[in-house]
């Protein structure tokens, strides 16, 4: 889990000058507050990604919301990495309150074990995550601790196969 060699993150040039100073401030202060627990994956204009250990996901999210006003979730998704036996969960946080952060999206990423996929729900911090987490539960089989409804949502009620967005779920003819 620790010091993940994230092959996607390394290709992006982090030395680029940013238009928006506040975004790099967020990441700096977050890393200062939670050293070791947060890794910066990349930093682009208006977009950045940080990687958080699954245990400290909730406190980091709470810190980001309270300190910088990242108040809603633009998108939330999960990605299956069978080679590393992990599932990555991405929360794309945005802000409506903070005018400076309007164009900015922070990708808060965490990874859970593929066999026993379980993560803490952020529903108490971002109520807007409710349906996204339900969708991730049924599409990738990640159980969200603290979420009131881990149950089928988009798929038929009698779905008895693997969660479809896992990589070992094969489409017919593909």
């Amino acid at each position: 889990m620790e010091n993940k060699d994230n092959s996607f993150g390394q290709l992006i040039d982090t030395s680029k000058d940013l238009d928006n100073k506040i975004t790099s401030n967020i990441i700096k202060s977050a890393i200062q507050n939670f050293n070791q627990k947060i890794q910066l994956v990349y930093e682009k204009p208006n977009r950045s990604k940080i990687f958080v250990n699954n245990e400290s996901l909730v406190e980091v999210a709470l810190f980001l919301r309270n300190t910088y006003g990242l108040d809603h979730v633009e998108s939330m998704s999960g990605t299956d990495f069978p080679a590393e036996n992990e599932i990555e969960i991405n929360y794309h946080l945005g802000s409506y309150i903070n005018q400076d952060l309007h164009p900015y999206i922070l990708n808060l990423a965490t990874r859970v074990d593929r066999e026993n996929a379980k993560s803490n729900s952020l529903i108490n911090i971002f109520p807007s995550v409710e349906y996204f987490e339900r969708e991730t539960y049924e599409m990738l089989g990640v159980y969200f601790v603290g979420h009131p409804r881990n149950e089928p949502f988009l798929l038929p009620e009698d779905w008895a196969d693997l969660p479809p967005l896992r990589k070992d779920f094969k489409l017919k003819g593909r």
Binding site: L155, P156, P164, F169, L171, G173
Partner: peptide
């Protein structure tokens, strides 16, 4: 008629 574009979809 046949499933169209979604011929290989799981649902």
């Amino acid at each position: 008629i046949t499933g169209g574009l979604y011929l290989d979809s799981y649902n």
